[in-house]
């Protein structure tokens, strides 16, 4: 079932008055349950594409449909509501809220959604246990390792069972063993919970783990297929 349909996306940035083409006529569909990697070198437009699909940025041209609804016509507050209820985000540098504990970080999105306290706590502890952080609920980010922080970020992204998790280079700041464990975790969540993942990367290990690989270069899709055929 198709959940995202991006059509002819163009994104042009102004850099010191000079227009820079970040995306050029990119079209792509994402189906429920996909485990997709967008691969490409730095500056190829991976993050821009993720931001546009995630409703964090608007394309210069083109349309993004989420279950048939056009994101590019939505107001900032509609987009905020959409991001809250439909998306999960994992960032390269973890980006946890530093004053909150691991548990509070995971509960944060559910707070915004108005999930009742007991239910929130149950789901947050359950997912933290699942990502291997049992006993670390009350640790603040500065008392967690990079890998642990990224696992909290994954837990935060998936706890509300979003339609799509967007992960921007999730393993970039992790050592290879930790990165691999994180990919195991995401793959398990994909299979077990049916959560759709779209991640950008230039890490061959991550590309290998994806079931579908889209290659970007200079803002254009230059290849698409299964990872092993990528």
């Amino acid at each position: 079932m198709e959940i995202i349909n991006a059509v002819n996306l163009v994104k042009i940035y102004e850099d010191k008055g000079v227009p820079v083409m970040a995306l050029s006529d990119v079209s792509l569909t994402i189906n429920k349950g996909d485990f997709i990697s967008i691969a490409g070198p730095s500056g190829s437009g991976k993050t821009t594409l993720l931001n546009i699909i995630g409703g964090l940025d608007a394309p210069t041209k083109g349309r993004v449909y989420l279950e048939g609804e056009d994101l590019t016509r939505m107001s900032p507050s509609q987009l905020a509501r959409l991001r809250l209820n439909k998306y999960g985000f994992i960032f390269q540098s973890y980006n946890l809220i530093p004053v909150l504990t691991a548990l509070e970080n995971v509960e944060y999105v559910m707070h915004l959604q108005g999930v009742p306290s007991q239910e929130r706590h149950r789901r947050a502890t359950e997912i933290l246990d699942e990502v291997g952080l049992r006993g670390m609920y009350n640790r603040r980010p500065d008392h967690l390792s990079g890998g642990e922080q990224q696992r909290v970020a994954v837990a935060r992204a998936v706890v509300a069972i979003p339609m799509l998790v967007l992960a921007d280079e999730p393993t970039a700041n992790l050592d290879s063993a930790t990165g691999e464990r994180l990919m195991d975790l995401m793959a398990r969540l994909n299979q077990k919970r049916g959560i759709t993942f779209l991640f950008s990367t230039h890490d061959p290990m991550v590309m290998d783990r994806a079931r579908r690989l889209i290659r970007l270069k200079d803002g254009r899709i230059v290849g698409e297929g299964n990872a092993d055929r990528g």
Partner: peptide
């Protein structure tokens, strides 16, 4: 500022 970006990305409304 980055933190506010995260909060906004996660769906926090500007009013909050």
């Amino acid at each position: 500022i980055r933190e506010f970006g995260i909060m906004t990305a996660l769906g926090t409304r500007p009013g909050y």
